[in-house]
């Protein structure tokens, strides 16, 4: 393990311990009240979800066109985190929507695009898990198509109507709301980096072990 890893784990643990205190201390939003506090988890996890998806896509494209196995390991690790943070986003969203919109789910552009992106990531993992040998290339192809698909989903659903709050609200937040949000966002980002590092390392070790077995046979 790298030298920075253990200190980072401790910092991350502390941040996740402090975050609930900050969130609890933030003032109640005037119209939504307590439910609005989900936003401190929902928004950071959604950002991390998007970041993981971008990393997975870029690494996949690089792997597909003659990249090293390192790119593939990165793409795989990122895809798993897409599913994880996507699940957090997709669970916290409806919890909030039930109270704010009165329904669990809306066929809104952000919701639909997130759900389809999440499904592509799940399909990616299934392909890697059940596809057998050679599925690394195929999964990279799927990730490339999944990335190209996002604008189309966006346009096609945007044509209906949208009620999801836009990200324009973020820069205008008063400090009392902003501080817990950014603190929470940094915590999620740190957690993401740590998980990604652990997962990539696991694959590195596996690859090393495989190489050793192969050299023993030879």
């Amino acid at each position: 393990m790298k030298k920075w890893f253990m200190p980072a784990v401790i910092v991350c643990g502390l941040m996740f311990a402090i975050a609930p205190v900050l969130i609890a201390g933030a003032p109640y939003e005037s119209t939504m009240g307590l439910v609005q506090k989900i936003f401190y988890v929902h928004l950071p996890s959604a950002w991390t979800f998007l970041l993981a998806a971008i990393i997975c896509g870029v690494a996949s494209v690089r792997y597909l066109f003659g990249g090293a196995a390192r790119q593939d390991r990165l793409a795989w690790a990122a895809a798993e985190l897409v599913v994880l943070f996507g699940a957090i986003t997709l669970v916290t969203g409806p919890l909030w929507a039930r109270k704010a919109w009165g329904v669990w789910w809306q066929w809104d552009v952000r919701l639909t695009a997130s759900l389809m992106g999440w499904m592509v990531a799940v399909a990616y993992l299934m392909l890697r898990r059940y596809g057998g040998p050679g599925s690394d290339k195929l999964a990279a192809g799927l990730a490339l198509f999944g990335m190209a698909n996002v604008p189309f989903i966006y346009i096609s659903v945007n044509y209906w109507r949208t009620i999801h709050p836009t990200t324009n609200v973020v820069p205008t937040l008063p400090t009392s709301f902003g501080v817990p949000l950014w603190f929470s966002a940094v915590s999620f980002l740190l957690l993401f980096v740590l998980l990604l590092r652990v997962r990539v390392r696991l694959e590195e070790q596996r690859a090393k072990l495989d190489a050793m077995y192969l050299s023993m046979d030879a």
């Binding site: 389809m116 499904m119 592509v120 399909a123 299934m126 392909l127 059940y130 596809g131 057998g132 050679g134 599925s135 195929l138 799927l142 198509f145 999944g146 698909n149 189309f152 989903i153 346009i155 096609s156």
Partner: peptide
């Protein structure tokens, strides 16, 4: 064609991408 469990994987991969 080269993958295992290809018959189930085809719809699993194809439908999320062809949603638009």
């Amino acid at each position: 064609v080269r993958a295992r469990s290809r018959d189930v994987l085809l719809p699993v991969l194809l439908y999320p991408i062809t949603v638009p």
